[in-house]
Nucleic acid binder design. Structure first.
Lengths: 346, 346
DNA sequence: AATTGGCACTCAGAACAGGTGAGTGCCAGA
DNA sequence: TCTGGCACTCACCTGTTCTGAGTGCCAATT
């Protein structure tokens, strides 16, 4: 039932409200936007928009504020992603260019993104579930402590401590390493995890020190592989929440908690549904299941050596969606290009 | 000029204010504390305390609030650290007991501490400057990427990527590793750093691929050792700041920023002056140089394999110092014991 | 059928006034 | 040195009024 102009009015309301933080009234709209009709006409349109629950009035005699649904329509139909300014582009390169391992690059990515958008920036580690293990390294630390290092072809390195209660000489160590390597090297993480489980299920063939060590090592490998499955996040800009605090009816506690938890945000990011361009937004109440009913997330997919993951921003529902879409998309593209360059250099 | 009873009054004011968040008046004091004198007498004492700038009145006809100086006197002379309840002790063990590498233990430590105190918990990594390098490991990842892994006797493991533009076979790799190891293994990090610098200053004797690789590797080792010097922090409980937000006149922005920065907090923690028991507090304006003039930090030293570091909590000036002292001290002791156990098992 | 000007109405928020009470400072007497 | 008493201050609560931004609705216009 909402007319075409009605939608333009919705757009105006969203834009002005994001700008001013104030509920926007019919008169303000005719002043700031060239609709060529009177305030009364706008009012009629606004009444319709309110019927459709796209906007709402905080109290009877006040301007209107977009609802969750209103923002949703805005991002789906009304917001064109405008390209970044040259200045912003150079800012991205300034942050991201230069060598560095995966950790480095991702940290710089979130810094750039929080700078660009003024929101909390989040990036998922590329999924390692499909990565393959390329190296297993064992280092004896003394006192029966054995450092187990796993390296994947995507460049992720992780270490863990195993307790083996014995010392090994070079030869034995090499053999233990060989036994463990056979299970993992060159195989996708998921498959490796399965083989490790099978191995653990076997009864101890021989209760030799070497066998005991192998079991201990495999056990921590299993733990580590489990962590590979639930990937991690890198974040920056939590402090910006204090700035936009007034946008949250309640406190920013749930947001800070989610940032510390990571798990929640991880799930949220993973479950977002992307459009054809890999862009996705999750708005207000849509985040209720995660305890973030007053926040929005804008994210984009990026590509790291074939593994897809997401990068995005988290902020108040009242955020500048077009700008954030643009920033997130630009950073995602840059990131993809960087990690692919890395790949070609391999 | 302040009498002995005057100090007791100060103590009462601090305690009640921490309890109630309300400025406390003379009448409230005689009601809640058994001073055996009248409100008028208390008023006289309060006037003296105000002269000494230990307390202040938000406005003329209102109760008093402790000043920074007042809190300082309180923690220095009036607060007895009361031991934790058995329930709290078991809570600590529940969190901390169990195996795990250094990272693990420290993460669990801050979780326990934030749980116990309701404040932001912080722990410094034990200083690695005096640690010795016990292993150097090189792993070729293909594409000229070489993973350099350093392990110290304190259990810290770190990795970094070097780009070497050549592939090596097992023998060459072993020789390169040997050359690098000679510089570092068995030596304190500080000394190793120096030898690395010297090596870099040498003109390339022979421009062989191996020499080039060694230089590239040594370069990233130098970077890594530099990072050893500026140790890191582990934190938890940032979300609790949202709860005690009203205790900060300004916003919690500076706090969140400091938490993200880490460097600031690192310095602050390092510069705190401990008493005989290794306990230290830094209160309100004393933190002004770090931009945290409205916050307090309570910290305790702990011992990890001979390397001293600190563990503490960060919160509003209006915090429960005795409880926090007790919690921080208990956790520090537990931590010391755990890391020493680890040591004896070596 | 869509648009418009006009108008009555609503209601949050500011401005003001009066009352209350918690709290103070001070002083004279115990 | 302590105490009761007393005048005084001032934040805060309450109630009242006023204002203005903004609405909803309707009859007239295009």
């Amino acid at each position: 039932m909402v007319t075409d102009r009605g939608l333009q009015v919705l757009r105006a309301i969203v834009q002005d409200f994001v700008d001013t933080r104030e509920p926007v009234g019919s008169k303000a709209i005719v002043e700031r936007h060239a609709f060529g009709v009177s305030a009364a006409t706008i009012r009629n349109d606004m009444a319709l928009l309110e019927d459709e629950e796209l906007i709402a009035a905080p109290h009877t005699s006040s301007g209107r504020v977009p609802t969750d649904k209103g923002y949703r329509v805005f991002v789906d139909h009304l917001a064109e992603v405008r390209p970044l300014s040259p200045a912003q582009r150079t800012a991205i390169s300034a942050f991201l260019d230069g060598p560095g391992d995966l950790d480095d690059v991702l940290v710089r990515t979130v810094r750039a993104l929080t700078q660009l958008t003024g929101q909390v920036a989040i990036v998922q580690y590329p999924s390692f579930a499909r990565a393959t293990v390329s190296h297993v390294e064992l280092v004896q630390l003394g006192g029966g402590r054995m450092l187990v290092i796993l390296v994947t072809d995507t460049g992720r390195v992780s270490q863990r401590l195993a307790f083996v209660h014995d010392e090994f000489d070079e030869n034995d160590l090499a053999r233990v390493r060989g036994d463990v390597s056979v299970l993992l090297v060159g195989r996708p993480v998921r498959e490796g995890a399965q083989r490790v489980e099978e191995r653990l299920a076997q009864p101890d063939a021989s209760p030799s020190p070497r066998e005991a060590a192998i079991v201990a090592i495999i056990r921590v490998v299993a733990e580590e592989l489990e962590e590979f499955r639930q990937d991690r996040l890198v974040m920056a800009g939590a402090a910006t929440l204090a700035r936009s605090e007034s946008d949250f009816r309640g406190s920013i506690y749930p947001l800070l908690e989610a940032i510390e938890e990571q798990v929640t945000l991880m799930k949220l990011m993973s479950e977002m549904v992307a459009d054809d361009h890999g862009l996705a937004a999750s708005i207000g109440r849509e985040n209720e299941p995660f305890g973030l009913g007053e926040a929005s997330v804008v994210a984009s997919e990026y590509d790291a050596t074939g593994a897809r993951a997401r990068v995005g921003v988290l902020g108040p529902m009242r955020m500048d969606y077009p700008t954030n879409f643009a920033a997130v998309r630009a950073v995602a593209r840059y990131l993809t290009r960087m990690l692919d360059e890395d790949e070609t250099a391999r």
